[in-house]
Amino acid sequence: MITQRAANIAFNILVIVAAVFFALEAETFQTSGLLASTGLPSKFFPQLMLAFIGLCSVIVIGAYVFRGFAGTDKGASVFEDGGAARRGLLVLAVAVACYLVWSLWSFIPMLILIGPACALAMGVRSPWMYVSLLVMSGIVYLVFTQLLNVQLT
């Protein structure tokens, strides 16, 4: 399993890269007209925060590289076991897929898909659970469309 140490180092390197990107992006901010000369430039605060984020990331990386841990996660893994990782990541994939289905097609296919797909991702075997989830989806649909008059398309 992936360790907290490796995952945190990789994550913080990504954070530093992203911070540099956003800091450079902030250089392109343009204030037009008279407002440009008033107060501090718009890039000041985002760049201040990004510098701070970068500094914290360097400290976190330092902690993991030299000590091997930060806080109390010495020798800990990101996921409990392979099964937990599979379930969590598959449900994440289902959530993204459902969003895409809804935005590319329409609400109803997403509504039918979300419950059973999540159950499948979590390794549910009981057919009753799949039926219950479809019923739940139907109830949510009725509550929002009939009771709250929300147009779900």
């Binding site: 959530a95 979300i114 159950a119 989830l133 739940m136 929300v150 779900l152």
Partner: peptide
């Protein structure tokens, strides 16, 4: 079961947020 709670909360979050802003 959590297997019931997970899709329910996910669906409610999706629909709830959409209903506020469309």
């Amino acid at each position: 079961p959590t297997t019931f709670i997970v899709p329910t909360v996910l669906l409610l979050s999706f629909v709830g947020i959409f209903s506020v802003s469309h």
